[in-house]
């Protein structure tokens, strides 16, 4: 039970918003010490952990192309394109992206989309462009909300889409683990099939929330505008 102190450190560290890198490193060292590793083994664990997890930093390879097309106005063009489509709102743009992301992931194309190559340069500017067209201006706190939802649409789409595809990591993990440990023989296809109800539920729940986001933004803008007008009127009487 003592090893759970490491978990506790992580929870407390994140909760009081210390630098996550420090929290994670300290928790790792404490857990390793409690687990009986000596200092050399701890250093080795950090070294081999880094070496074997280099693949998660793959986003770095798309930054050069994204950087240069942003320099030439990619985000602006994405906004302009959306501004021409009158029926599009921030929520509907994100709903469309959710659908594309989930369907492509379900047929195994998880490399379409992603935060560095799609959300930052295309999806968020389009959602922002739609809001800009509808409201005329987008204050900072609304921008934050649209940003959060842009990244969320990507995550929800890929998490609950990819499991419908048979050759994805999580499905293979289940079959390998279960087959070797319990001597079952599960077909990846069976698992993928039973991921479909959850995939549909995820789309309905998240899609509904995106449509509600539009209404929430409408209301917020109605309030801010009335507040602005009130302030303006109050200013006039001075």
């Amino acid at each position: 039970m003592l090893v759970l102190i490491g978990v506790l450190l992580v929870i407390v560290g994140f909760a009081i918003r210390l630098n996550p890198l420090v929290v994670v490193t300290v928790a790792g060292i404490v857990t390793a010490l409690l687990g009986g590793l000596n200092p050399l083994q701890i250093l080795e664990a950090f070294g081999s952990g880094f070496a074997s997890s280099r693949s998660v930093t793959i986003f770095a390879v798309v930054l050069p192309v994204i950087g240069i097309i942003e320099y030439f106005g990619l985000q602006e063009q994405a906004k302009n394109l959306i501004a021409k489509l009158a029926r599009l709102t921030a929520g509907r743009v994100l709903l469309a992206y959710l659908a594309i992301r989930q369907i492509t992931a379900a047929v195994g194309l998880t490399s379409i989309g992603g935060h560095a190559q799609a959300v930052r340069p295309l999806v968020f500017p389009m959602a922002e462009g739609a809001a800009l067209r509808r409201y005329g201006h987008v204050p900072e706190h609304i921008k934050e909300r649209i940003k959060g939802h842009s990244a969320a649409a990507d995550n929800v789409g890929v998490f609950f889409g990819e499991d419908v595809f048979v050759a994805v990591g999580s499905i293979l993990l289940i079959t390998t683990f279960v087959d070797t440990t319990y001597h079952l023989h599960l077909e990846p296809l069976q698992l993928a099939l039973w991921a479909i109800p959850t995939a549909i539920a995820a789309f309905l729940i998240h899609g509904f929330r995106l449509l509600r986001l539009d209404r929430a933004l409408d209301r917020e803008f109605a309030n801010t505008t009335t507040a602005d007008e009130a302030a303006a009127t109050a200013g006039d009487t001075k």
Binding site: V3, P20, L21, G28, G35, A45, F50, A116
Partner: peptide, 27 residues
């Protein structure tokens, strides 16, 4: 773009190391 990501770029790899340490220690 890289500088706006900052140290968060290293975080996923550190977390994955932490996961390995957690598992080793019997969490």
């Amino acid at each position: 773009i890289l500088e706006s990501i900052g140290w968060a770029a290293l975080l996923p790899q550190m977390l994955s190391t932490l996961g390995i340490l957690f598992t080793k220690a019997g969490v």
